[in-house]
Amino acid sequence: MNTTVVNTGTEGKQWGGGNEPLKSSYGKMMMWFFIVSDALTFSGFLAAYGFSRFKFIDSWPIADEVFTHVPFLHGQELPMIYVAFMTFVLIMSSVTMVLAVDAGHHMKKAKVTFYMFLTIIGGLIFVGSQAWEWATFIQGDYGAIQTKGGNILQFGEYKTVNGEEVFKRVALADFVTAEQKMRTEHENKNGLWFVGESSLPTYTVDEVLKGLKSHSNVLVRTQIINEEGHKTVLSREESIKQIANNGKAVVEGANLQVNEYGSPLFADFFFFITGFHGFHVFSGVVLNIIIFFNVILGTYERRGSYEMVEKVGLYWHFVDLVWVFVFTFFYLV
């Protein structure tokens, strides 16, 4: 005699089990779950960025002055043009992805293959652009002085452009002369093997001070934002006094410790958030390549459904969605 109940008498009824109230397959639902949790991770990072920015609201770097470069156009100040291009590339690759999904619904293998290919190319262009953006940011362009308190002092001069007095940045190389130095870079082969240091800056603070004294047009700009939304420019006497009394180190470019554009936190968050996003794009490209080859091999044709393309598409669109927010909060606001 059976001791377990096999039939409950509710088969076919609403509460009999086996319902799919969300009308979605297991795989798709799990992708949505992952996207929600990943969205929360990214918003955690962006909210932390907002926290630090609100904390130093009166001295935060102005993104327009930081990201002004476009490949092959040296020396021109074109704020945001390249990031806008990157955004467009990512949106475009989202479009080819959704076209691939659509072609999958109609079981058109050749079209899915073609659109997946375009999506992968778009993703690669984006990752490459981001690498270039990082390299430019790390290299820096003008150079600056860090004070004992950890603030950044930048240099510039007033120029007349179209009849208006405009403050233009001046690079250290334009007014400072490097001299013979006693201090050489300490390499770990010369002493204790575990003690080394990163490459020394081109100039010393004393050389910068000398250069500043001999160029009467050069002024110091602090990080403090005034009422008009510009960084405060010091007078000539105050400029020399600041460098002489508070100057501690010459900063060229940006890394996790110092940042010639302003608060080191800005560089930290830039590397962390765009890096984490770039890693998502990279893994998205890898997933897309795997699916691309599966499409070519006819895996989904045999399976009778291109749902896998749809699932990886969800992830790809999510990466685009995150970039839209990173673009706004890092480059626009």
Partner: peptide, 10 residues
Amino acid sequence: AYYITWDFMH
């Protein structure tokens, strides 16, 4: 974000 989620992500 709305249009990406609603139309691209279906």
